[in-house]
């Protein structure tokens, strides 16, 4: 019977660890395409941009359109609403953004209509709906209040309503996306 030398034990440990390590690499490599198939598919990603005619929206009213399956709020703001949004003391905001960074033209606010807390659609687009304590939007799920610039003012949401990429094609048409 031969005695096992310390060298042999080290060699065996090395081989076992290497084999195990490559085994794990192999499993990850095999799992990657399976998991990746769960990411958005090409047709989902290819969802076209949305063009909206805004000439029919009177001041003080809004319209909700669909972009990539999500609601987008387009709001024709009144001069009072614009002033309110611009005059806010930044120190009072949870997510500090000045109004002019959130709009391309002050009278039009475009924002994704999804509460940044847990994804509900806030109310306030219709005249009859609750607009919260700051005259913008109110999320009924967990009580987040947004102002006329779509900024979070009160409640559990951590961020302002997101502004999607958009441009004015003409004075009456905007393209979102």
């Amino acid at each position: 019977m031969t005695t096992i030398k310390a060298d042999d034990v080290k060699r065996r440990d090395f081989l076992q660890l290497t084999a195990g390590g490559f085994g794990i690499v192999g499993v990850i490599a095999a799992a990657t395409p399976l998991v990746n198939s769960l990411n958005p598919a090409k047709d989902t990603l290819a969802l076209a941009t949305t063009e909206v005619d805004i000439s029919t929206i009177p001041p003080g009213e809004g319209r909700t359109v669909t972009w990539q399956g999500k609601p987008v709020f387009i709001k024709h703001r009144t001069p009072e609403e614009i002033k309110e949004a611009e005059d806010v003391n930044l120190a009072l905001l949870g997510d500090k953004e000045i109004d002019s960074d959130r709009v391309k033209r002050p009278e039009w606010l475009v924002a994704i209509g999804i509460c940044t807390h847990l994804g509900c659609v806030p109310t306030g687009q219709k005249m009859t709906e609750a607009r919260g304590d700051y005259g913008g939007w109110f999320c009924p799920c967990h009580g987040s209040h947004y102002d006329t610039s779509g900024r979070i003012r009160k409640g559990p949401a951590p961020k302002n309503l997101a502004v999607p990429p958009y441009e004015f094609i003409s004075d009456t048409v905007i393209k979102i996306g």
């Binding site: 998991v35 769960l38 990411n39 958005p40 598919a41 989902t44 969802l47 990539q68 399956g69 999500k70 999804i114 994804g119």
Partner: peptide
């Protein structure tokens, strides 16, 4: 979240998975 959804919101890919 995107992996759960398979898109930009809870939609058809989410339902099938």
């Amino acid at each position: 979240r995107t992996l759960l959804w398979g898109g930009f919101s809870v939609d058809n890919p989410t339902l099938t998975r």
